[in-house]
C-alpha cells in the first residue's frame, strides 16, 4: 500500500512539475520578444531580417532571459536554506546582512584591486558575505527564543550598518553609481559576455538539491538533527557557503532583489510544506517566474523606458512581506 501511494505521489509530482516548467517556458519565450528593438518570430524567420534579429536575440534577449531565470531560482533557494538553518520564516540574504556584506566586499575589491577579474571579485565578495552572515548568526544567540520577529529585525539593522559604512566609503571615492547597481536588481544591463558568471548559481542550486534532506532535517532543530546522526555544524557551514556564493554572484552581476528569497519560499511552503527534496524544484520555478514577470512588467509599463525588476518586485514583495509578517508571525517560531 505504501509503495503504491509513493508511486502515485511521484506521478502527480512529476505531472505538476511538468506543468510548472511549461508555464515558465511560456514566460521565458514571452520575455525573449519584449523590448525596444523589433524582435518577433516572423523577423527571425524572414531571411532579409534574420541576421539582425538573431544578433538581438543572442546578444541581448537570451542572456537577459537566462539571467532572470538563474537569479530568480537561486535566490529563492538561498532564501529557503537560510530559513531552515535559522529556523525562522523571515530570514533571507537581505534580512541577514549577507547581501550588504557582499556589496561591501565588492567595494573593497573596486578600491584595492580594480583590475581583478570579475570571478575573483565575486569570490572575495562571497567571502565577505560569508563573514557577514556568520556575524549575523553570532548576533542571533543573543535573541531570545520565542521572539521570531526580532531575528529579521536584527538582520536588517545589521545589514543597515554594513550598508551605511559601504555607502560612506563609496561616497568618499565617487563610487556611488556602482553601489546603486548592486543594490537594485536591474536586468537591462545584461548582455552576452557580462552575465555568464551567473551560470555558477546553477551548480549551487543543484548542490542545494543534493543536500535537500540535510537542510530539512536542520529545520527540525539541532537536537533532532543530532538524534538522526546529521552533522549539524557541517550542514550549517555548507548552507552558509551556498547562500553566500549565491548572494555574491547575483549582487555582482545584476544586483540584489530584496525579499525575493523570503516571499517565494513562504508562499511555496504554505502550499506544499517544507520537505525540500520535494519543494526545492518549486522554489526554483516560482522564483524564476516571479522575477521574469517583474522584469516584463518593468519593460512594458513605461516602454520604451524601463523600471528595474528589483524595483517592481520591491513594490510587490514588500506588500506580500507585510502580509506574511502579520499573518504568519504566530507560528513563525
Amino acid at each position: 500500500m505504501a509503495s503504491q501511494m509513493q508511486a502515485r505521489t511521484l506521478r502527480s509530482t512529476i505531472g505538476g512539475l511538468t506543468a510548472g516548467l511549461l508555464v515558465l517556458g511560456a514566460l521565458a519565450a514571452a520575455s525573449l520578444f519584449i523590448g525596444v528593438a523589433d524582435l518577433t518570430p516572423a523577423r527571425l524567420a524572414d531571411p532579409a531580417t534574420r541576421e539582425a534579429a538573431m544578433s538581438t536575440l543572442m546578444d541581448s534577449r537570451l542572456p537577459r532571459t537566462m539571467a532572470l531565470l538563474l537569479s530568480g531560482s537561486c535566490l529563492a533557494i538561498a532564501g529557503v536554506i537560510m530559513q531552515m538553518l535559522t529556523r525562522n520564516r523571515f530570514v533571507e540574504p537581505t534580512t541577514a546582512g549577507t547581501t550588504e556584506a557582499a556589496g561591501f566586499g565588492m567595494l573593497v575589491m573596486l578600491l584595492l584591486f580594480p583590475g581583478a577579474p570579475v570571478v575573483i571579485k565575486s569570490l572575495v565578495a562571497a567571502g565577505f558575505a560569508c563573514a557577514g552572515t556568520a556575524v549575523f548568526l553570532r548576533l542571533l544567540r543573543a535573541v531570545p527564543p520565542g521572539a521570531p520577529l526580532l531575528v529579521p529585525l536584527t538582520g536588517i539593522m545589521f545589514g543597515g550598518i554594513v550598508g551605511s559604512v559601504t555607502a560612506f566609503i563609496a561616497h568618499r571615492y565617487g563610487l556611488m553609481q556602482s553601489l546603486g547597481a548592486w543594490r537594485n536588481g536591474d536586468f537591462s544591463v545584461v548582455i552576452s559576455g557580462r552575465y555568464e558568471l551567473l551560470w555558477l548559481t546553477l551548480v549551487l542550486s543543484v548542490a542545494a538539491y543534493l543536500a535537500a534532506d540535510r537542510f530539512t532535517i536542520a529545520g527540525l532543530g539541532g537536537d533532532m538533527s543530532r538524534n538522526l546522526g546529521l552533522d549539524y555544524g557541517k550542514t550549517m557551514a555548507v548552507g552558509l557557503v551556498i547562500v553566500s556564493l549565491v548572494s555574491a554572484l547575483v549582487v555582482t552581476t545584476v544586483g540584489s532583489i530584496p525579499f525575493l528569497g523570503l516571499v517565494v519560499p513562504n508562499l511555496v511552503s504554505l502550499a506544499a510544506g517544507d520537505n525540500l527534496r520535494r519543494t526545492l524544484p518549486w522554489m526554483a520555478i516560482s522564483g524564476a517566474a516571479v522575477v521574469l514577470v517583474c522584469d516584463m512588467v518593468g519593460r512594458l509599463i513605461v516602454a520604451p523606458y524601463e523600471i528595474p525588476a528589483g524595483t517592481v518586485f520591491g513594490v510587490l514583495g514588500s506588500a506580500v512581506f507585510l502580509y506574511l509578517l502579520l499573518g504568519r508571525s504566530t507560528r513563525a517560531a
Binding site: Q83, M84, R87, N88, R89, P145, T216, G219, L220, G221, D223, M224, N227, S269, L270, G273, D274, N275, A332, A333
Partner: peptide, 13 residues
C-alpha cells in the same frame, strides 16, 4: 532520543 521541547520550524507532514 526525544527531548521534551521540540521547536520544529519546518512545515512537514
Amino acid at each position: 532520543v526525544l527531548k521534551q521541547e521540540n521547536r520544529v520550524a519546518a512545515r512537514l507532514t
